[in-house]
Amino acid sequence: MEDAREHIRLEMESRSDNEEFARVVAAVFMSRLDPTIEETDDVKTAVSEAVTNAVIHGYKEGEGTVWMELTADRKDRCLTVRITDQGVGIQDIEKAMEPMYTTDRSGDRSGMGFSFMEAFMDQVEVKSEPGRGTAVTMKKYIGR
Rank of each mutant, 00 (worst) to 15 (best):
Q86W: 07
D76Y: 13
E98H: 06
T80Y: 00
E98A: 10
T102V: 06
T137F: 01
D104Q: 07
E94H: 08
A119Y: 00
L79K: 03
K127L: 14
V126E: 07
A119Q: 12
K75T: 08
S128P: 09
Y101F: 14
E94L: 04
A96L: 01
L79G: 07
G107H: 10
Q91W: 12
D104H: 11
G89V: 07
P130Y: 09
F120L: 03
G111R: 05
G113N: 11
M97G: 01
E125M: 13
F120E: 00
V88Q: 10
D108V: 15
G131H: 05
G113P: 04
A72H: 09
K95G: 02
S110V: 08
D122Q: 10
R82Q: 12
M117D: 07
M138I: 07
A135H: 11
R74T: 14
E125G: 13
R132Y: 12
V124H: 01
I83L: 09
M112F: 14
D104K: 12
G133P: 07
D73R: 05
S128Y: 09
P130Q: 10
R82N: 08
T80E: 07
V136C: 00
F120H: 09
M112R: 08
G107M: 13
V126A: 06
G111F: 01
G87A: 06
D108C: 10
G131Y: 10
E129M: 13
S128N: 08
K75C: 10
M121W: 03
M112H: 10
G131V: 12
C78K: 15
G111Y: 02
M112Y: 14
R105H: 13
A135N: 06
E129W: 09
K127C: 11
V136Q: 03
G87V: 05
K127W: 11
R77V: 05
Q123M: 14
D122R: 08
G107V: 10
Q86M: 14
Q91E: 15
G89E: 06
A96D: 08
E69S: 15
D73N: 14
E125S: 14
R132D: 15
K127D: 15
V124Y: 06
I93T: 09
D122A: 09
Q91L: 08
Q123I: 11
R82Y: 00
G113I: 01
G111W: 05
V124S: 02
R82P: 01
D122P: 07
G107N: 12
R74S: 13
R105W: 12
Q91C: 05
I93G: 06
K95V: 09
T134P: 00
P130W: 10
D108M: 13
D76K: 15
V81C: 03
M97P: 01
A72V: 10
G107P: 02
D85A: 02
F116T: 04
V88W: 02
Q91R: 10
A72Y: 06
L79N: 05
E118T: 01
E129H: 13
D85G: 06
I93S: 03
M100G: 02
V124M: 07
F114N: 06
M100Q: 12
T137H: 07
